[in-house]
């Protein structure tokens, strides 16, 4: 077994070394990075897409399908975790007198430290503002839907840790839970069909000057959906894995 593992590692390592040796030197102007689509994105990206942030342009316009499937992948991860039997199984409710008290005791055997409670409560609004700023400014500066989703999701997890499961669950309204979880893929598909109607291409964005507002609106809707849907999915992943089994 050990010899087999060693042989496997050697073969993989040799393949990687050969592959790396075949790469063009770093910064080579004739390398494939500079001779294929990259140069065109850099030179004409802004004019072609009408978006000011080139990263956003590549993410949503040139590579829209990749981003769409990326959103679907995150959603699939949540579906997979929720499909685990332990994620949705509820512990049997304790009966008789003092049921509520014992239930609470089992839920958080260790009371939350007042220091951590205070600091998380104090920092949460600032984290939220940072996430919103990263979403809003993502138009022109680094940041955007995915980053903001990760930050909001982390904030929701931190709040869930100090406030307890019941309160954290209330952050996501029960009726809208399923819709919010699927928000990213749903909105992406909707925008893709709108683009189809407008330009004749699935996920197409109207590029002409007159459609400026519409194009911006499509991008903003997509980014907000990625941020909200992604944050809800991250928080739900945490809740599902944290569920008492």
């Amino acid at each position: 077994m050990r010899t087999f593992a060693l042989a496997l590692v050697l073969v993989v390592a040799a393949t990687m070394v050969i592959g790396i040796a075949g790469l063009p030197p770093h910064g080579d102007p004739d390398g494939p990075v500079h001779t294929h689509v990259g140069a065109r994105y850099l030179e004409q990206g802004v004019a072609e897409t009408g978006l000011r942030n080139l990263v956003t342009a590549v993410l949503l316009v040139y590579r829209g399908f990749d981003t769409f499937l990326e959103v679907v992948v995150i959603f699939t991860a949540l579906v997979a975790v929720l499909a685990l039997p332990s994620a949705t199984r509820q512990p049997p409710p304790p009966r008789g007198e003092g049921a509520a008290a014992s239930r609470r005791e089992a839920d958080d055997a260790v009371p939350v430290s007042p220091v951590v409670f205070l600091v998380v409560r104090l920092l949460a609004p600032f984290i939220a503002v940072f996430a919103l700023a990263s979403l809003y400014r993502g138009h022109v500066t680094p940041g955007g839907g995915f980053q903001s989703a990760a930050i909001i999701g982390a904030m929701m997890i931190a709040l869930g840790l100090v406030f307890g499961r019941e309160h954290a669950a209330r952050l996501v309204p029960h009726g809208a839970k399923a819709w919010l979880q699927a928000l990213g893929p749903l909105v992406f598909a909707a925008v893709a069909f709108v683009g189809w109607r407008l330009t004749g291409a699935f996920l197409g964005f109207p590029a002409d000057e007159a459609a400026y507002a519409l194009r911006e609106a499509m991008v903003v809707v997509l980014e907000v959906a990625i941020a909200v849907g992604g944050a809800v999915i991250l928080a739900q992943l945490f809740m599902a894995l944290d569920a008492p089994s």
Binding site: V55, S134, P142, G143, G144, F146, Q147, A150, I151, A154
Partner: peptide, 12 residues
């Protein structure tokens, strides 16, 4: 962009 994502998702 990648750095922010790496910090938030990878480390957090």
């Amino acid at each position: 962009d990648v750095a922010i994502t790496e910090a938030a998702v990878g480390a957090g």
